[in-house]
């Protein structure tokens, strides 16, 4: 009937799952450790890059994307593209009008502490 993809479901060997877990734990340690070292403006990007790598490991191995119908990965990537589109445009705009934006400011006498 419909279009079929590959078959025989992939069964992940335990060593592979364990290796992925080990990588994820090491990356978690790295992402914490990186905050102890100063990389200037790079820190946030390092943190995000580590998070993306971790996410990729979870997606590829725990969620089987590597062995799955490629379209499922397309869905995941598309959703990320649209999220970044949303965040990107909103960020560009809010940054651009920030100086014209008047908000209440804490009055000086209340700002002690």
């Amino acid at each position: 009937m419909s279009v079929h993809f590959e078959h025989e479901h992939h069964v992940s060997p335990i060593w592979q799952l364990a290796a992925v877990l080990a990588v994820l734990l090491i990356l978690t340690f790295i992402t914490v450790a990186v905050t102890w070292i100063d990389l200037g403006g790079l820190n946030i990007w390092v943190a995000l890059a580590v998070a993306v790598v971790k996410a990729a490991f979870v997606g590829l191995y725990f969620m089987h994307l590597r062995y799955d119908a490629p379209f499922n990965a397309v869905i995941l990537i598309a959703s990320l593209v649209f999220v970044s589109l949303f965040i990107g445009f909103s960020l560009i705009d809010t940054a651009a009008y920030q100086d014209q934006f008047e908000q209440p400011v804490i009055s000086s006498d209340a700002a002690g502490g």
Binding site: V20, V58, F62
Partner: peptide, 9 residues
């Protein structure tokens, strides 16, 4: 997550 993946296996 690891135990879940093992569970699926």
């Amino acid at each position: 997550s690891f135990t879940m993946a093992w569970g699926v296996r």
